[in-house]
């Protein structure tokens, strides 16, 4: 018997659109049941089990609350295993990514904090648009390829926002 799927654990139907408030509330409810603190007084085996269950729950929550990870998980549920690293065939998007990275470098050279804030807003809007797009096509078998491409794009934007955060840190020195 395998682990129940992340959605089932949270008593949800597999879907890309999730009510985040509800997900968080459900997470807290489940965490109360399995957290090792509840078993501080129990035997060693019981404590170890609680540790494992909690780690699984935390992992599931992490995946479900992060759009790119949720997207990846949904696609993996329905199809073949998705390799983590692939050569992405998405020239237009890659070109756009390169432009964005160049822009980011300029912001760093100019130490332009206001520019970084604007960049972040644009990035967030782009992410939301991608999410909408993915939500509309992920469960359509005919559009599988498109969905996978969108998921890869989400991962790219995640990396980019990580870089923005590192830039903010450097500029904070």
């Amino acid at each position: 018997m395998g682990n129940p799927c992340h959605f089932a654990l949270f008593d949800l139907q597999p879907s890309f659109r999730l009510d985040m408030e509800q997900l968080a509330a459900r997470y807290r409810e489940l965490a109360r049941q399995v957290h090792p603190d509840r078993f501080a007084d129990a035997g060693e085996r019981e404590q170890r089990l609680a540790l494992e269950r909690s780690a699984c729950l935390n992992e599931a929550y992490q995946v479900l609350k992060t759009p790119s990870q949720r997207a990846r998980y949904l696609l993996a549920m329905r199809g073949p295993e998705l390799p983590l690293e692939v050569t992405v065939q998405d020239p237009d998007f890659l070109l756009q990514q390169m432009q964005l990275r160049e822009e980011l470098e300029e912001l760093q050279d100019d130490a332009d904090l206001a520019g970084v804030a604007t960049f972040k807003r644009r990035l967030k809007a782009a992410q939301e648009q991608l999410n909408e797009h993915f939500a509309a096509c992920w469960d359509d078998e005919a559009r599988r390829e498109e969905a996978e491409r969108l998921m890869r794009r989400m991962q790219f934007l995640d990396k980019l926002s990580h870089e923005v955060r590192q830039l903010e840190e450097r500029l904070d020195d």
């Binding site: 129940p4 959605f7 089932a8 139907q13």
Partner: peptide, 14 residues
């Protein structure tokens, strides 16, 4: 864990 989900529609996807 099951009790926390009791009475709900348990999705049996493995």
């Amino acid at each position: 864990v099951k009790a926390a989900l009791a009475g709900r529609n348990l999705n049996e996807i493995e």
